[in-house]
């Protein structure tokens, strides 16, 4: 391959990459720009705001929409964190058993987990709505967390059991020969190796819970449990004739921040190459 083809290939890759980036990030950029536009500016058919203002952020954080947004933010954070914690805890146990132990019904568990994930959310939500109302879970945190587990558990079990299968379990035996007790071998060798997988799973299931809309809007009715994606639909403008798009955009930007922060914080821990070099490689 001569240099010219490499250069051309490089250029093509850059162009293709840029195209994908623009396609993916343009709507985000638009929402950011929208969030800085004043109410009069919203329909100006321009990408950049004529005059960047913080009105929209003011409105949702300290203004009229404050109660609606801040309570929704609190609900979202609480529900997503609890749902993630439960999903990771349960799926760690489950995946450990699937990766390490031989027992009848192993396949059944994995297939069931997949089957649960196949059900469209929209088909479950109506019966769930009725059931929750009867047993008093409607518009409560547990009432949202439980359906979220049905979304996060299957994927957590699958990713974690795939990850655990790659761990060279022979290391546990090596540690025991080196003088470790079963517990020491687990804590000093297996846990450090399993951590990146657990973190990856936690982040994936946090995103799923954080981004859900259908359960959020169908199983809640007040600020007691309504998460942000659902609350966005209830925003109104300053008057009923005003477009709430600016406020919605501002709220969308704010709820995106934790996701970005999480990825930036943990991307180093998600390094999957950590187990390389244990064995021959």
């Amino acid at each position: 391959m001569d240099e010219r083809t490499t250069l051309r290939q490089k250029a093509l890759w850059w162009i293709a990459g840029a195209a994908v980036l623009i396609y993916a990030l343009f709507p985000v950029a638009w929402i950011v720009s929208l969030s800085f536009k004043s109410a009069a500016d919203l329909g100006n058919r321009q990408f950049l705001p004529a005059d960047a203002v913080l009105d929209n952020y003011e409105m949702i954080l300290v203004g009229d929409a404050q109660t609606l947004f801040l309570s929704a933010l609190r609900n979202s954070i609480g529900i997503a964190v609890i749902a993630t914690f439960l999903a990771v805890l349960l799926s760690t146990f489950c995946a450990y058993a699937i990766a390490r132990l031989e027992f009848p019904g192993k396949k059944v568990i994995l297939t069931t987990a997949l089957a649960v994930a196949i059900f469209p959310v929209i088909s479950i939500v109506t019966p769930l709505f009725n059931l929750w109302r009867h047993i008093g879970l409607y518009d409560t945190w547990p009432g949202v967390i439980i359906p979220y587990l049905s979304l996060t558990l299957p994927i957590s079990i699958w990713t974690l059991s795939a990850f655990f299968r790659q761990i060279p379990w022979e290391l546990e035996q090596a540690a025991q020969v080196d003088g470790a007790t079963t517990w020491q071998a687990f804590r000093r060798v297996i846990v450090p190796l399993a951590t990146p997988g657990v973190f990856t799973t936690a982040i994936i299931s946090f995103f799923i819970a954080w981004n859900d809309f259908v359960y959020g809007i169908s199983l809640t009715s007040t600020e007691a449990a309504r998460p942000v994606p659902a609350a966005l639909a209830f925003f109104t403008g300053a008057s009923q004739f005003e477009d709430p798009a600016g406020a919605i955009a501002a709220a969308a930007v704010i709820v995106t921040i934790p996701v970005v922060v999480l990825v930036l914080l943990f991307q180093r821990r998600i390094v999957s190459g950590l187990t390389q070099g244990a064995v021959k490689g």
Binding site: P168, Q173, A174, L193, L274, A278, V279
Partner: peptide, 14 residues
């Protein structure tokens, strides 16, 4: 109190 060298070395990657 025996020392063993495994076929795939079983080094601790972390």
């Amino acid at each position: 109190n025996l020392a063993m060298v495994f076929q795939n070395y079983a080094l601790y990657p972390h």
